[in-house]
Each structure stands twice: as structure tokens, then as C-alpha cells.
Nucleic acid binder design. Structure first.
Length: 899
DNA sequence: GCCGCGACGTA
DNA sequence: CGTACGTCGCGGCG
């Protein structure tokens, strides 16, 4: 034991002990591996997360000593005594390989000792270090994701047990353990022994959870007392305990941490020193850790050689009055300013509470809480000033937040969310934190709600300004970083001329919402409920009155395939499918009345759910305000959420009744719907330049009838409905990469028949086949597909060795230019319509977009004008080889306005 | 409370 | 073994 640590009387010395493996694993699962890889393919997410966490710890806890303990692969006394110890664990993910070595290298470069002991686990090393640290008079902070560490807690030793999704957790002390587990830290191992530990493959006493275990411990003073009185414990749990007492003894033996190992490193070697600068530079170059490099050198008061001249991102000025705002913008607003709104949750939505600004050389924050009129006026002026160029992440959302406070936002020249989307439309998230991480390797803790699966590696205080300022700074950096990338991919016009202007249009549509006939909605709810009740009763009657949950596929499987012993349907993960198509098949085969009732139940519950969703979505103004997601669909389409107004039923009679509740609002004359007819087929005709298709559209023929006459070799008027519907299914299927197998299944014909049908089709419309082949071939070479307006979708999996992945990518490649071009076209039409309405000073407005359809609310006396301008702008949104046909309908409800 | 799954609505 | 979405209820896990 060493007693040579320097004594600094005023500041307590503190030893930080980290469980290396467990924290590396936490980091690994907190940060997506695909976002962290070097050019050589080495994944670095665990390394990045670990180092980031360590730097934060050092900054916040200011330890004087640091050490990291690691497990070895070699057997330990625990695995030797109990061969199943930690058995049954999943294999280490491939991406994790090598990252522990890298972490150890970083530690070496930071002059932080890493400690391993043959035959022992990191936990034992940590326990020993805690004991030695305490003996040397140090405070000890243990960072571990293993609950066994709780047994180490004393007055001098605390444990930080990071949990997912919680950003600012204080270290656990004795009181925290008692509050959570109702036992003292020194009793925690007793509790764990009774309960067992799944992760270590240590079963405890079945039926005994933490509550029961704690009760016993408090009653008998600990495990020893429990075992002495084992025969007095009553009930099932008592029996269970007696039966599994061997488990408990074994668990207690194994979870006891050794505190007296002979460590190869003394406490004085753990004194926190400055990192080895050269080694860090070299290592971080290889790992491509540029943000971390800066953070590390900042922390140790050192400047890296290539320190960016960027502002200190943590620092900002609070602008508290009008003069401060004007002055700040006058001196810093000339170049691009990053803008981020700090929000608090408010009644399902959010309220702005402040605005953060990041310029090239300074940051600022304006609080909106208790802001006075003068200050707000100055703020309104800079926000609305087109001359102050801004970059923001999620312009539409920010615009709406500000509009809700009466603030106008103008001069936004970049939305980094959309820019990132246009660069990588297939990403599932374009949230600021994710995008900043991928493109800047910057970990941000945004003021978004926690629980998005991110381990908070940056532990921030309750201050709202600082995270907002960091976000604003990140937005500015992202904008500078992404704009050239987008331009290089030829997407800058898409951003500035299509998506950004569209954001404004969508914001207005969302804010307008659509009026709802709530009385009719309630009526529908009751009607559907009656249908459900009747169908439920019928269903139960058909199965001897057994009351299963008809909404549970699992219970239905039991009824259908065990009780009724109906023929088996298609296999799925959980057994056999009970989907609508299979139920219809079963009904055709067996005629069982349960199936009739079940199908009626399914239909009615689905409709009632839709109605219930709509009911809950009606705002105080009696209207439903959907939100359009502009950066979700990889093809360029919009999507609609909260609620989704792009999947309101239309195909069934009952379903269409729901469309009757969407009505024209007060002060308006009528709803107008306008949709493109067969836009995707027309795009197919245009892109393939197929003479036959082009001719059909030029002559205004019924396309499917025309195609049918060629495929079946009969005159157009002799094409039967059956022929027409087959051809229709095939035409649409082609744009999705339909196979002859898929076509045969859909049309319930033989594969041979389907193959012949397709052969005939391509014999007549050969250019379509040539085009579809060419699209995939070109995409394989370029790595991406492109729409008519240059929207790209990157499909790296076209080159995959995995046949299944490659096939999926090929179908996506077939479809993306068609679906995406249609999306582009209607977006252009929306811009045209919006601009025309504004220019002509019309009161009418656009409310909804459903991929190929627009719904407008038309003011009195504007019907003819609006219809004309809608036809004009939709019809001319693209210059194709075939005309764009637009169908318009009018009516007081969405249903009535259909045609 | 979270999450995957099955099911199903739209274009 | 047809693309693109969002939402719901269930049930397993914690």
C-alpha cells in the first residue's frame, strides 16, 4: 500500500475507477456503430463513447487519480467454480471487436493505467482499488454498469451506475441504494444472491424478487439470518427458497468481490497527468476523432495544433434587452448564424422558451421567459430580417414554434435537417443529435425528450441555454459542412427551390388544419361499436361461447388451428398468420361462421380505431392539424403523422363514411380535391419513352383497356373487366419490381400464366422492360438512382453479396425514380398553387396532400379561379412526354368532393 | 414503460 | 418472392 499521494489539504483527493468493459459496452450500444468507422472500416463507436464519457467525468468530477479495470478472456475463479457462469450470453457483436484494444491504447496515451488480473474480473480489481483508495484517504468514485458494485458503497465510496436515457444521474450513495432496494449497500450482495442475476446466468430463488428479498433481509438481518431461520419462512416462496437454497449460497459466494488482490499498479501511478500529446495526435488521427481531440486538449488546457478558430462553444452571451440584441446582430450577424429554439413540453406539443444563436465568433441566447415588449420587438426584427442569414435544423418546426408566439422567421437559407436528408434520404433519423454525430462526430445532448435510446454521455446541468447554444453552434457547423456536400451531389437546387419553400407551404397547411364534423365522428364511433359488439357475440357463439380476445393474433391462432383445427395458413415468426387474406382463404375452404364474424370484427375495429384516433386529434379550433414529415420517406414523398391523414379509408363503403367528417370550415364555401390520374404510369411512359404507352396517353384512352387489348390481342372494346384488372395489376406491379411469382399470387393464377402475361406485356411494351433494366444497371454503376428533378437515393446494397438484400435494393432502385418523380411533381405543383393563391390575393388555401391528391378549402366566390389555377399548376408541374391529367371535385366534405 | 410483432389503412 | 409510409393492440421484458 502506498502512502505517497500528494496531500492537498483544501481539495479532497478523488480516485475515479472505471469498469472498462462494461462502460465500453454501454457506449457501444448507445452510439450507432454504422456512424462511427474509420476509412479502413474499423468501428470506433465504443471507443468514441468511452473517451467522451471519460472526458465528461474528468471535467465534472475533477478526479486527482484515475484507473480503468478490464476483464481478461482467461478463466476466472468464478468460471472455474461454476462453469455456467456468465453462460448463455450472446456473442459479442462483430463491430465490437478490436475496440477494447483501442480504448486501452487511448488510455496509455492519456497516461491512465489500465489494470487486468489473470484469474480475476474487473469487479475484483475495482473492489480492491476502492479499498486501497479509501485506505489512502481518497474519495472513490466507481463507474460501472454492474450492480454488484453497489456492495462497495461506503461514506467514502460512491458508485455511478449509468442508465440509458437519463442524462444527469447523481452517483449512488448508501441512501440511494436503500431508497431503491430497501437494503444497505453491504446487504446488496445478499439481495442479489436471493434474486439472482440473469446477465451472469446465476438463477436465484424463483418467485423471489427484490421486494421479497429485501423484506427477509430486514427481518433476519441478512442472508446468514435468513438461512438460520429458513424453516420459519412460510408460503410458496418459503418452499421455493428451501428448494433453491444452493443457488443462493453459490450466488452469494460468486458475487462477493475480492478486495485484497495484489495489483500490479500502485495508487500513485494513478495520479491524473497530462496526456502524451504526440501519442494522442497519432491515435486520434487514425481514429478520425477531431471533436474529441479538441475536447481532450481543452480539458487539459492544451491547444491542438490544428485548433479550429471556432468559438468556444460552451460560452455565450445572454442578450437581455433590445440594445444587446441589435448590437450582437450588428457585429456578428453578417455571416451565417446558426439558430436553435430551446423548448419545453407543453400539452402534447412544445413551447419556445428561448433562442440560441451561433455566429462565427460568438454565441448568444435570448430567453423568452419574462421578456419585455421592447426586447421582444428587437428579437422579432432580427428574426424576420432576410438580411441576417440563418441556418436552422427543422425549419418547419421552428417556424411553427415561433409563429405560435407571433414571431416571424425569415432569412433562413439552410435547413440542415433537409440538407442531411437530401444527402442520405435512407437514414431513419435526421435528428440534430444524430446528424451532428455522423457528420461532425459531435455528441450533443439536445433539449429533446430523453429516452431515444441514447446514453447521455454528456452530463449537463439543468441549464437550458447551454445545450441550445451548443445545438445552434452545431447547426452552423453542419450547414457549412453539408452545403458543399449537397452541392457536389447536385442537390442544392432541390433544397433551395423545392424543399425549403415547401416547408413554408407545409407549415401553413399544418397550422390551417382541416375542419371536422365532431358530431358525425361520434356517431360513427357508436355505429362501429355496435358492429363490433355484434360481431364479437357472433364470434363467441361460433366457438362454444369461448371468450377469446379477437384482437390477439396469438389467441386467434389457438382458436383457429387448435380448437377448430382449420387448415394451416402461411408460417410467420409466431406461428401461422391470421391476416385478412388467409382468413378469406380459410372461409372459402371451410365456410366456418367464426371466420365471418372475425372478419367483420377486424374491419369494424380498424375503422373504430381510425375514428378514435381522429377524435383525439381534434384541436380546440375544431380542426385536425396533421404534421407532415419532410425528411422521412426515402423516395422523396411526404409522410403524415399525429394523426396520419394519408391513410384515411377510401376503398370500402363503410370506410368512406369517415371521409364525410372532414368538412369545409366556417367562412369557406367548399372543399376541393384535385388528383393526378395514374401519375406513376405516366412517369413510367415518360422515362421509358415507350411509344405504345405514350400514344395511349396522347389519345386519352383508358390506359388499362389499351394495354389489355395489346397484351391479349383483342380490340379495345373487347377487353373484359377481368382482362383489364389483370393488366392493371401488372402495370402497377412493374413499378415495384413485381415478379411472375408475385403476380401469380396476386391474381390467383398459375406462375406459368403470369409469366406468359408478362411476356406478352413486354413484347408489346418493350421499352418498359428496357427502361427497368437500365435503371438498375445504371444504379449499380452510379450507386444511386435519380428522379426527373435530380433527387438521388443511394443504394449501396445493390453491390451486396447477400442475395436477399441485393434483390430488395434492386426493387427499391426500380421504384425510387418513379415514386420519387411523382413526389417531386406534386411538390412543384404545391409551390405553384400556393404562390398563385398568394399572388392573386385569394383567401382559399391548401389543407392536405395525399401523395397524388391535394385538398383545398375554397373561399366564397373563388371556386372557378381556384379550380383553374389548381388545374394549371398541377398540370404544368413537369414537362413530360405525356400529359398530366388532373381530376377535380367539389363538395362540403372530403367524401363529397371526391369524384 | 419500452419494444418487436402482426395486422392493416393509404398512395 | 411488390414500393413507400404510420398507427394500433398485444404480449414479453424490465
Amino acid at each position: 500500500m502506498s502512502e505517497s499521494t500528494k496531500l492537498v489539504p483544501t481539495e479532497p483527493q478523488r480516485l475515479l475507477v472505471i469498469d472498462g468493459h462494461s462502460m465500453a459496452f454501454r457506449a457501444f450500444y448507445a452510439l450507432p456503430a454504422e456512424n462511427f468507422a474509420t476509412d479502413t472500416g474499423q468501428h470506433t463507436n465504443a471507443v468514441h463513447g468511452f473517451v467522451s464519457m471519460l472526458l465528461t467525468m474528468i471535467r465534472q468530477q475533477k478526479p486527482t487519480h484515475v484507473a480503468v479495470a478490464f476483464d481478461l478472456d482467461t478463466p476466472t475463479f468464478r468460471s472455474l467454480e461454476y462453469t455456467e457462469y456468465k453462460g448463455g450470453r450472446n456473442k459479442t457483436p462483430e463491430e465490437f471487436y478490436g475496440q477494447i484494444d483501442l480504448i486501452q491504447k487511448v488510455m496509455e496515451a492519456m497516461n491512465i493505467p489500465t489494470i487486468t488480473m489473470d484469474g480475476f474480473e474487473a469487479d475484483d480489481i475495482i473492489a480492491t482499488l476502492a479499498a486501497q483508495g479509501e485506505a489512502a484517504g481518497l474519495d472513490v468514485l466507481v463507474v460501472s454498469g454492474d450492480r454488484d458494485a453497489f456492495q462497495l458503497i461506503t461514506e467514502k465510496t460512491l458508485v455511478l451506475y449509468p442508465k440509458k436515457g437519463i442524462s444527469d444521474i447523481p452517483p449512488m450513495d448508501a441512501a440511494a441504494v436503500e431508497a431503491k432496494y430497501f437494503v444497505r449497500p453491504d446487504q446488496y450482495s445478499d439481495l442479489a444472491a436471493l434474486v439472482g442475476e440473469t446477465a451472469d446466468n446465476l438463477p436465484g430463488v424463483p418467485g423471489v424478487g427484490p421486494k421479497t428479498a429485501a423484506k427477509w433481509i430486514n427481518l433476519y438481518g441478512g442472508l446468514a439470518g435468513i438461512l438460520e431461520n429458513i424453516n420459519q419462512i412460510k408460503g410458496k416462496v418459503g418452499d421455493s427458497l428451501r428448494e433453491h437454497v444452493d443457488n443462493v449460497s453459490r450466488n452469494r459466494h460468486l458475487n462477493h468481490l475480492l478486495r485484497d488482490l495484489e495489483l500490479p499498479v500502485g495508487i500513485d501511478a494513478m495520479v491524473l497527468e497530462r496526456p502524451n500529446r504526440e501519442a494522442i495526435e497519432e491515435l486520434f488521427d487514425a481514429l478520425q476523432f477531431n471533436t474529441l481531440r479538441k475536447r481532450l486538449f481543452d480539458l487539459f488546457g492544451d491547444e491542438p495544433d490544428d485548433a479550429p478558430e471556432a468559438a468556444e462553444i460552451a460560452e455565450h452571451q445572454d442578450l437581455a434587452d433590445a440594445a444587446a440584441i441589435r448590437t450582437w446582430f450588428a457585429s456578428h450577424g453578417a455571416a451565417l448564424v446558426g439558430l436553435h429554439a430551446a423548448t419545453v413540453p407543453a400539452g402534447g406539443g412544445a413551447d419556445v422558451i428561448g433562442l440560441a444563436f451561433a455566429a462565427s465568433d460568438a454565441n448568444a441566447y435570448v430567453s423568452l421567459e419574462r421578456i419585455d415588449a421592447d426586447t421582444e420587438a428587437a428579437l422579432a426584427q432580427v428574426l424576420a430580417a432576410p438580411g441576417y442569414a440563418k441556418a436552422v435544423h427543422d425549419f418547419k418546426g421552428t417556424y411553427k414554434l415561433l409563429a405560435a408566439r407571433g414571431l416571424e422567421l425569415a432569412g433562413v437559407q439552410d435547413d440542415t435537417m433537409i440538407t442531411a436528408y437530401l444527402i442520405q434520404p435512407d437514414r431513419r433519423s435526421h435528428e440534430l443529435a444524430d446528424i451532428a454525430q455522423v457528420h461532425l462526430k459531435l455528441s450533443l445532448e439536445v433539449d429533446a425528450p430523453a429516452g431515444n435510446g441514447q446514453l447521455a454521455l454528456d452530463l449537463e446541468g439543468p441549464d437550458t441555454a447551454t445545450p441550445a447554444v451548443r445545438a445552434a453552434h452545431a447547426v452552423r457547423e453542419l450547414s457549412l459542412h453539408l452545403a458543399p456536400m449537397l452541392a457536389e451531389r447536385g442537390g442544392d437546387k432541390l433544397l433551395t427551390e423545392m424543399e425549403m419553400p415547401l416547408s413554408l407551404v407545409l407549415a401553413e397547411m399544418e397550422m390551417a388544419g382541416i375542419a371536422i364534423d365532431t358530431a358525425k365522428l361520434d356517431e360513427l364511433y357508436d355505429d362501429f361499436t355496435k358492429t363490433i359488439d355484434a360481431a364479437t357475440a357472433e364470434a363467441y357463439a361460433a366457438i362454444d361461447g369461448e371468450e377469446v380476445n379477437l384482437s390477439s393474433p396469438k389467441q386467434l391462432q389457438v382458436v383457429l388451428f387448435e380448437k377448430l383445427d382449420l387448415p394451416k395458413t402461411k408460417k410467420i415468426k409466431t406461428g401461422f398468420t391470421t391476416d385478412a387474406e388467409s382468413l378469406a382463404d380459410l372461409l372459402a375452404k371451410t365456410g366456418h361462421p367464426f371466420l365471418v364474424a372475425l372478419m367483420a370484427y377486424r374491419d369494424a375495429t380498424k375503422l373504430r380505431q381510425t375514428v378514435e384516433g381522429l377524435r383525439k386529434a381534434v384541436a380546440e379550433d375544431g380542426r385536425i392539424h396533421t404534421t407532415y414529415a419532410q425528411t422521412v420517406a426515402a423516395t422523396g414523398r411526404l409522410s403524415s403523422l399525429n394523426p396520419n391523414l394519408q391513410n384515411i379509408p377510401v376503398r370500402s363503403e363503410e370506410g368512406r363514411r369517415i371521409r364525410e367528417v372532414f368538412i369545409v370550415g366556417e367562412g369557406y364555401e367548399t372543399l376541393l380535391t384535385a388528383d393526378y390520374s395514374q401519375i406513376e404510369m405516366r412517369i413510367m411512359a415518360h422515362l421509358s419513352k415507350d411509344e405504345g404507352l405514350i400514344q395511349a396517353y396522347a389519345e386519352g384512352e383508358d390506359l388499362h383497356r389499351f394495354v389489355g387489348s395489346h397484351v391479349f390481342g383483342v380490340a379495345p372494346q373487347e377487353v373484359t373487366n377481368e382482362m383489364r384488372s389483370k393488366v392493371k395489376a401488372m402495370s402497377y406491379g412493374l413499378a415495384y419490381g413485381l415478379s411472375s411469382f408475385g403476380l401469380s399470387k396476386q391474381l390467383k393464377i398459375s406462375v406459368d400464366e403470369a409469366r406468359t402475361l408478362m411476356k406478352e406485356y413486354f413484347a408489346r411494351f418493350g421499352a418498359v422492360r428496357d427502361y427497368l433494366r437500365a435503371v438498375v444497371d445504371k444504379a449499380r454503376i452510379d450507386g444511386y438512382t435519380e428522379t426527373i428533378f435530380g433527387r438521388r437515393r443511394y443504394l449501396p446494397e445493390l453491390a451486396s453479396d447477400n442475395r436477399q438484400l441485393r434483390d430488395i435494393a434492386e426493387r427499391a432502385a426500380l421504384n425510387a425514380p418513379i415514386q420519387g418523380s411523382a413526389a417531386d411533381i406534386i411538390k412543384r405543383a404545391m409551390l405553384g398553387v400556393h404562390e398563385a393563391l398568394r399572388e392573386q390575393g385569394l383567401k382559399s388555401r391548401m389543407l392536405l396532400q395525399v401523395h397524388d391528391e391535394l385538398v383545398l378549402e375554397v373561399a366564397a366566390g373563388e371556386v372557378e379561379t381556384v379550380e383553374a389555377l389548381v388545374r394549371k399548376h398541377m398540370g404544368s408541374a413537369a414537362d413530360l412526354l405525356v400529359p398530366l391529367d388532373v381530376q377535380v371535385g367539389l363538395g362540403r366534405s372530403w367524401q363529397d368532393a371526391a369524384h
